[in-house]
Amino acid sequence: MSERYDVAIIGAGPAGLTAGIYAARARLRTIVLDESVPGGQVKTTHKVSNYPGFPEDVHGSELSAAFARQAERFGARIRRSVEITAHDLSAFVKTLELDESETVEARAVIVATGAKPRPLGVPGEDTFKGRGISYCATCDGAYFEGKDIHVIGGGNSAVEEALFLTQFARSVTIVHQFEQFQAEPASVGEALTNPKIRVLFGHEPRAFHGETALEALEVEALRTRERKRLQTDGVFVFVGMVPRTDLLARYVELAPGGYVETTDAMETRIPGVYAAGDIRVKRFRQITTAVADGTIAALAAQKYLR
């Protein structure tokens, strides 16, 4: 069984759903595919404060649901929890096989697969993932009610999620490699004055230890090279993202870091294939820049299809 669309959008984050809104409003037969539920990284972001149109903070999960509803209202079909098990993007009509059981055909494909949390890459991380190590505060924060936990990182995600985690944990210690945070001053100020938050600047994680569950985090002081083991009930890791470009890697040469080069119309080197959002080579990766990419990709695809 094969279903025919004008545009297939892979990834239902802000870039993909915005592309979906524009494509569907242009009366293109549009399908948006995602391995998860819609929202991309935004769906597990506790609150979003810098997305225009929301003078009060908006929960990431609500913003995600709103993006999805808006795309569906104009007729975009969103398929949740589907895996692309085979694909051919180089032909004139592109094909995507879903869950080894159905095939979607489309003349244009917008790849908006985004990025996933970067693992630290230190010993013990794989062993204790889900046994004390987490990459999602909204999902796992409640497991740490009354506990003493650590957050690794110093950017916006690390600082904002550390603040969120204070509503569960007894103490949150932020471990950051540099001597100051890279996050926005507004959240940094809030974190530094929060009585539950402690900060360990100039330290890097080196290993995780424990019997069956995580018990200690080993860190190194970068200046003195001194290592110590910190007792911990849990560690949340927010040290940046890596692009999800497995799908595109077969068709284009990826730039350093695994990102995809596009023109300013979001075109890749393959005719009819566009890339939008965090997977692109670009300087700033924000929800606002992702929705801009999605807009442009959909408009460019619309022109291509005419």
């Binding site: 391995e35 895996e83 869950d99 993932k129 889900g130 046994r131 990459y135 740490f144």
Partner: peptide, 30 residues
Amino acid sequence: LGVSGSPTLLFFKSGREVGARMTGEDIKRS
């Protein structure tokens, strides 16, 4: 059971936990 994240999948055979646990957002159907 040392479960500290959702979702976490545990596998059991004859009353014992076997294999690696699966956890987090990236559990693929395949």
